[in-house]
Amino acid sequence: MSAEAEDAGRRTTAGSDGTEPNADVGAGAGPGAGSGAGVGHGASAGAGPRGADAGAGAATGDWPLWEVFVRSRRGLSHVHAGSLHAPDAAMALRNARDLYTRRQEGVSVWVVPSTAVTASSPDEKDPFFASAADKPYRHPTFYELPEGVRNL
């Protein structure tokens, strides 16, 4: 626990190094909107009458971005739910609980630093994905699904 606290302490001297969100991750509909609002909110609150920015030591802009993955039920995979800002992994997990699981969505949550995500580039969309379109034999459309099979 003290190691986490040390991380929080170092955060203010570390500057914005490594906190830039991956552009492609941020461009997704959910995460992009969420992170943009977070930064703007932090900036305006800092100038507010309460001077609330000083209590947390730094504005949101200094906090790294985290991607949140939620497993909704046992047996299913973790699915990307969105992103958030947090000073460290432990707080990111708690923020994820508050932001993405408050309506009983999950049984398990992962948080991953956004900088750890390597994403495909929109420019390479065609070489990456287009060539699969004319290969219908790769699609499992020739099977009949038994009744009762879900999540496929």
Binding site: A37, G38, H41, G42, A45, G46, G48, R50, A52, D53, G55, A56, A59, T60, W63, L84, H85, A86, R94, N95, D98, L99, R102
Partner: peptide
């Protein structure tokens, strides 16, 4: 509406 960051605002409201 006044919390230092949006994530913390949600946590306090929760």
């Amino acid at each position: 509406g006044h919390a230092p960051v949006l994530e913390e605002e949600v946590a306090l409201a929760n």
